[in-house]
Design a protein around this nucleic acid. Structure first.
Lengths: 186, 186
DNA sequence: GTCTATAAAGCGATAGAC
DNA sequence: GTCTATCGCTTTATAGAC
């Protein structure tokens, strides 16, 4: 059996392993089983080993959010449409990924030391884009705190929904944040 | 050098190691260095090894929250005083513990599989006690969602404050939640 | 690009002296 | 209750065939 793979596919498969096992918990052999790729393939794609894999995964996720969340938040349509679209995109994203935000999970562990810069970048860019959209929509001084609270609230909802093993907690929290955002606009 | 230790002291020291390294990242030798206890002492206190250590740590933290957060929330004083006291206690607790909630951190990782029941218990009891206090204070139907949002909001604030390495994000978020709680009462 | 075999280091855990 | 030595296993990573 020799199914040739592209690196970008390998990155997605490795990301699944990290979501499931965490960074420390994802041993190379666990990643091998989860992804179906042998060690040879893995070290071919990621010469720097596990840390290289994690960097590639964070890059991929960061790029996805940049393209699908932050930029739409800044450019297209009315403020309320943009913000609603953000919640929809984020809800679909985490729902299809076991309610794990790799940046959030890494921020809580010792991984924060190794990957501090991309983690910081991810959250700073998100808050910044959301604050801008809120401000564009007429939210005044409260746009700052509101943007922070919403990004924070999404992370908290992920923690709680996983802890209580109840995905409706995630959907419910996002519904309330969506509604609150709309009350801040015009 | 033979400094005799009590198990309860060992539990507190091990907790610090888990906060710093995470469950998977805290190797026995790392716990040895962090705590100053040798392997002999550790396995004397925790015959079940690492899993035993984590269980003891979660028990200790859970008991602390039960005594210092949940019960005061249910019994003493006016609702607004009880809720303010909760935020104060929680703020001081996590501030002095590197902004790590072990239950929240474990909920995001594979540790959730092993320690699912205590994790669930911790958050369910917290939400339940807070909901009761809010209800006692005159908050109506919204007490349910508000209690969930506040416990979730605290977890989110911990994630964000660690990710951006800015403790003021934690204090600011708690200030706003405190204020919101008061607007829900009477 | 993928496989298998293997090396070197670190892991959790145990045994026995004190 | 604490120490040191050690076992057996798994880990990350590499080498070389295909």
């Amino acid at each position: 059996m020799r199914t040739v793979t592209e690196r970008s596919d390998a990155v997605l498969a490795v990301a699944t392993a990290f979501r499931r096992f965490g960074y420390e918990g994802a041993s190379i052999s666990a990643i091998t089983e989860q992804t179906g790729l042998g060690k040879g393939s893995l070290y071919n794609f990621f010469p720097g080993g596990k840390e290289d894999m994690a960097t590639a995964v964070l890059d991929e996720v960061g790029a996805w959010f940049q393209a699908e969340v932050y930029e739409p938040l800044l450019h297209e349509g009315t403020a309320s449409a943009r913000i609603t679209a953000m919640f929809d995109a984020v809800e679909a994203y985490f729902t299809s990924r076991q309610l794990v935000c790799l940046f959030g999970a890494f921020a809580l562990g010792q991984e924060r030391t190794r990957f501090g810069e991309p983690i910081q970048q991810y959250f700073a860019a998100w808050i910044d884009a959301l604050r801008t959209a809120l401000h564009d929509g007429g939210a005044g001084r409260e746009a700052d705190d509101a943007a922070t609270d919403m990004v924070s609230g999404i992370q908290g909802a992920l923690v709680l929904a996983r802890a209580l093993d109840d995905i409706s907690l995630f959907h419910g929290a996002l519904d309330r944040m969506r509604a609150r955002a709309l009350t801040l606009l015009d």
